[in-house]
Simulated scan of single mutants.
Amino acid sequence: MKKKQWQGRGPGEHAEQHYLVQPRALAGGGDVRHASEFLRASGWRDKSKKDGPLTMESPDRTVRVAYDPYLLPGGWTIHGRAEGANGAWSAHLGQQTPVEIVAGLTDALTRPQSAHAPNAWGPLKEQNWHTLFEGGHYMATSPDGTAWMHYRQSVDGEAMWWTGAKDTQGYGWAASFTPNTPMHLVQAFSTELASPEPVMRPRGRVPLSPQIRTRSVSVRPSQLGAWQQARITDARAATWARNSNRRTRPRTTARPHTPAVSARTRR
């Protein structure tokens, strides 16, 4: 997938019609660059092949994020390499998963993990999602019933995260996470999934769903470009700060002292 830059217009530009869409879970996929350009600005490498699917690799080569719109069912695939006692993990998100929700997870891949224990259910409860806990099954459903998040565990110990959204006509998406997906990533995803904030879509890119609420807004291309560029600038600043901190961090352990070799003792 060829890299594209954010573009705007100069003087004399005309405002374009966009829509603020709620609930965000039914807003459609959106612009893939919302996620990919943030990763690029955070130091991730673009490993995409010409005219092929988007593939981004973390600086330490432990995680890959791919978006493939060419194969059915298409969508996002995120793989984390096994490290030490932690096994490999993966997440699969359908093509119509709103990119703002995808970015909840992919943005979190670029940040240090918080010292606080993650809680994937916390953001859902804060937004008054309906929760049900039965045995090894944990379920949460949005107040309007369009989105859900489940954790299921079978009697033989197999477990899986399953989430998604669907309207009354069957339009929607689904996503799954392997059980060993880092919990702070699942929490970052659930935070964006449960957010009540609308997302913006251009005219002609709003799904035809009876459960979607929209509000028309006029946006100049330069405004849209500035908002998008601000996100990239934030990613670059955070990356620079982390790298600078690593370079200036004082040594915490003393180098082992090797005594000078004395003259050979005569026998």
Rank of each mutant, 00 (worst) to 15 (best):
K166H: 14
P73R: 10
K125T: 03
P98T: 13
Q95A: 06
D51I: 04
A115W: 14
A115T: 12
Q95V: 10
M56N: 06
W76H: 04
W121Y: 13
R45M: 04
M139L: 08
P73A: 07
S42F: 13
S114V: 02
R33H: 12
D156A: 05
E57N: 03
Y151R: 15
A159L: 06
S58K: 08
P118Q: 11
P123T: 01
R45Y: 03
G75E: 09
S114P: 07
G104C: 01
G74L: 02
N128W: 04
G52I: 10
S142Q: 05
F38K: 14
R40T: 08
G172D: 00
T106K: 09
N86C: 05
G94R: 05
T62D: 11
G75H: 11
L124P: 00
P59E: 03
Y138M: 13
A174Y: 03
W89K: 15
K166W: 12
G52W: 10
P118R: 06
G87A: 12
R64H: 11
G135K: 10
R111I: 01
M139E: 11
R61N: 14
R111H: 04
P118S: 09
A174R: 14
R45A: 06
L54N: 07
N119K: 02
G164D: 10
A85H: 15
E126F: 01
R33Q: 12
G74K: 03
W44N: 05
E100D: 06
I78H: 03
A117E: 14
P53S: 04
S154G: 07
P118T: 05
A85I: 12
I78E: 00
E37R: 15
G84M: 01
W148S: 10
K166T: 10
D46R: 02
R111C: 00
G43Y: 00
E83A: 11
R45I: 06
T77R: 14
R45Q: 13
K125A: 08
V155C: 08
D46Y: 00
W173C: 03
S36D: 05
P53F: 04
Y138W: 09
N128L: 13
S154M: 10
H116V: 11
A103Y: 09
R81Y: 02
H150S: 08
N86R: 14
L54D: 03
S48Q: 12
H79P: 00
E158S: 13
N128E: 13
V102G: 01
G157L: 06
